[in-house]
Design a protein around this nucleic acid. Structure first.
Lengths: 209, 209
DNA sequence: TAGATTGTTAATCGATTAACAATC
DNA sequence: TAGATTGTTAATCGATTAACAATC
């Protein structure tokens, strides 16, 4: 096992490994070799072994990898068992879609609460999560200390809101607004989901492909 | 200008360039140099110039780039002016969110129609787009020949639906289901939006950061 | 045991950065 | 003109692939 900085390229492949292993696991597959996993995922066996070697030794010569075990190991590397607690800010159509359909528990996140400005939504529940008014946000975060916030709010309020939440202790942002967020505070991470970028990539490919 | 295969790394930076240039354009900025754009975007001036050189010469020595012009050029490279026409399949919370909030026109896509199985939704309109029943999908696509489909449907129907739509002429898929789609047919492109992957990346970072 | 497959080192390939002549 | 900044070539850096000894 090499102990060094993990490259972004490797980090971005980890969730994909996890998805494939989870799928194999659910199908009851017991073992898999790097080469057959590579075939499925359309990458080289070498790359899989090289990637995994950043984190430890999970296989066995002549056998390959135990699916359940490797799935659990990668889940652990990804922090799935770290008990993250999150809040959803903005329960418009998108926030609603996430609350209703996204399986947060499966990837180790507990949804503590949701917040919205709309009086019609406040005090209603979606899938057991209570929607609270925005003006209770600061107090709530200060008291219950969730560590992640999902931002499904209008663009213009995103950065000031993030700044406020960072002060209150939020350390991760799953950002669905179309602006890139940033902060000077160390140890805070943003994951920006830019819908526009992926649609434009598609546009590029069908235009030139 | 080098004429060769454009790498994925470059392609994935193009939408981000476009976003920044669009922002500068809207702010009325007239010119920008590769170094000041690099500062804003937190990448090197060299990389910007190298990337752009794949597609042509858009700057001027001693001056830099004209913002409006470069924005238009990159938009053109991305195929924004190609008159893409798309349909949305599945008008649950997510499909609804896209229909209601996403500015398709701004990136060169016209929303022709939407489809859903729910009788309650059929024949209603969202932002001027009529929702049609799923059993009219094949006939509609065959007749009106849209080229892109947005998939916001349950996982298990995604691949067979995609296969059917490819037969009918769809060439690009903006796929929001959590499965990776594929096809043998050449010239068909999938852009998978894996929410799970980005949330897991965030989990990794806050767990180790 | 023999065959299969790992983890790791070395080789290759590609992407990023630096440098600079050309020139607006 | 002098200063600024491009487009491009060369140098560097990092990521992917290949190869193979170790070993289950």
């Amino acid at each position: 096992m090499k102990k060094q900085k993990i490259s972004d390229a490797v980090i971005h492949r980890l969730p994909r490994y996890y998805r494939y292993l989870d799928d194999l696991y659910n199908k009851g597959v017991v073992r898999i070799s790097s080469s057959s996993l590579g075939d499925k995922m359309d990458i080289t066996a070498s790359q899989i072994r090289q990637d995994l070697s950043c984190f430890g030794e999970f296989g066995q010569q002549g056998y390959g990898y135990n699916v359940a075990e490797l799935r659990a190991e990668i889940g652990h590397i990804l922090g799935i068992d770290n008990g993250h607690r999150l809040i959803i800010i903005g329960v418009g159509h998108l926030g609603h879609a996430l609350l209703q359909n996204f399986d947060f528990e499966k990837v180790g996140f507990q949804v503590d609460s949701a917040f919205d400005v709309s009086p019609a939504l406040v005090d209603t529940q979606i899938r057991g999560v209570t929607i609270r008014p925005m003006d209770q946000l600061a107090e709530y975060v200060a008291r219950y200390q969730p560590n992640v916030a999902v931002l499904t709010v209008p663009q213009n309020v995103a950065q000031p809101l993030a700044d406020q939440l960072i002060d209150l202790g939020i350390r991760g942002f799953w950002n669905f607004t179309n602006v890139e967020l940033s902060t000077e505070v160390p140890g805070v991470f943003f994951e920006d989901v830019h819908f526009v970028d992926t649609l434009l990539t598609l546009s590029y490919r069908i235009s030139r492909g």
